[in-house]
Simulated scan of single mutants.
Amino acid sequence: MTAELEALQHNHTWSLVPLPLGHKPIGCKWVYKIKYRSDGTIERYKARLVAKRYTQVEGIDYQETFSPTAKLTTLRCLLTVAAARHWFIHQLDVQNVDILQDSGLLGARPDNFPMEQNLKLTPTDGELLHDPTKYRRLVGRLIYLTVTRPDIAYSVRTLSEFMHQPRKPHWDTALRILKYVKGTPGQGLLFPATNNLALKAFCDSDWGGCRATRRSVTGYCVFLGNALISWKSKKQTNVSEYRAMANTCLELTWLRYILQDLKVLQTVPVPLFCDNQAAMYIAANPIFHERTKHIEIDCHIVREKLQAGMISPSYVPTRFLLADVFTKALGKDQFVTLRDKLGLHDIHSPT
């Protein structure tokens, strides 16, 4: 409790002001929680001081009904611009729990890549875990780790599909990701001081990649100059490559507004690289065919941005498509090649 109070005061969480006439102060209460290790022993005690917001009355104690929060992509975008323009940055460290130790894998042999190539996990194959909470806790921590580790984004997204009923193959795959993390503990994003701050994007789709549902997995990554600021790996309801292009266009549109607020104008169309020539052809073709009616809305989005001069689609072979790492499990050589081109650097490496 003392540590919580000291942290709140150090971060200037509140300001002391006179109580307005006719108003009553909103109370607060302590919330206690015990965090356990994977073997069931107590790891530490946590205490949080929270306001009793349920006693507030709308229109009297507050006006807004939501609290705006910043996206992590916005933070990466801001850090990239700050590094390139040599702005002052103040850092705040947050206490978190080093995952390998809690999972008992400190002595495990590291792996060179996070997931076996072409691995297809299903919700029914393998023995059910006796204690699914350990799987959920581990995957939750890995999801948090993807904030700075895009190289495991596809693998972690795949594992998150089986939270409700995890099985042994899912657990084994999660442990393999940990072994990969063990081999690359200093891996992270680099925001270079020399940067032209020009947007470029890559998108990809793994046609029918999900073995269980036969749905497609789409992915994209966006760079601001040579710094990676945005990425996504997501399963879609259809098998269209245009969904990947449309999602990327929407992300680029939003990023252009953010950069405009930061006085970083994008004066030329954003290069959008894709390995599907048919997708680019239909995006540029004003005539719809019968077989493309199910993706008509997506085509409108992509074509609208193309005609507005916001994007410039270009073909790139699959082996050079950086977004490929967000749509499927790759072999060691291809994975390492694409990972390094994403701009990830290991601070523990002498090079």
Rank of each mutant, 00 (worst) to 15 (best):
V181R: 10
E4L: 04
T292D: 13
T133Q: 11
K168T: 14
V222I: 14
Y135Q: 07
I301G: 06
S15K: 13
L100P: 05
S314G: 07
L262C: 11
A227K: 07
T80E: 09
S230H: 09
R167V: 03
T74S: 15
T158I: 09
N285Q: 08
L190A: 04
F223K: 13
D324F: 00
L322D: 06
Q56H: 04
V81S: 09
K341D: 14
L49V: 07
E6Y: 00
D61E: 05
L190V: 07
I177R: 07
R339T: 12
Q277V: 14
R211G: 00
I60G: 02
G107L: 06
Q307I: 15
T74F: 02
R243I: 07
D131F: 01
L21P: 02
A174F: 01
T267C: 04
G343W: 05
K235H: 02
A174T: 10
H23S: 14
G331R: 08
G59L: 04
A329I: 11
V264K: 12
I347S: 02
D125V: 12
Y54D: 13
Y135C: 09
V268K: 15
S233Y: 02
V222A: 05
C28E: 03
Q307F: 00
E58L: 10
T69V: 15
F288T: 15
H12A: 05
K234S: 08
P350T: 07
I295L: 12
L75D: 00
L92H: 10
Q334N: 09
E241G: 06
K200D: 01
L142N: 09
D125L: 13
G186P: 12
S205V: 14
Q101R: 15
Y257S: 15
S160C: 09
R141H: 07
L338Y: 12
I297M: 12
L344A: 08
V50W: 00
A244W: 04
M280W: 06
V50Y: 04
K332G: 01
Y62P: 00
P114E: 11
H170C: 07
K46D: 09
G22V: 07
K52P: 00
L228F: 01
A82E: 07
L178D: 10
R109S: 13
P269H: 06
E127V: 14
A323K: 02
H294K: 11
C210M: 08
T2Q: 12
K263F: 01
Y281G: 04
Y45R: 15
D151W: 06
L121P: 08
K332D: 06
R214F: 10
P110L: 08
Y32E: 06
M115K: 06
I177E: 11
L265Q: 14
F288S: 15
T194D: 09
Q95W: 01
Y144I: 03
T133Y: 00
Y220C: 01
T327K: 08
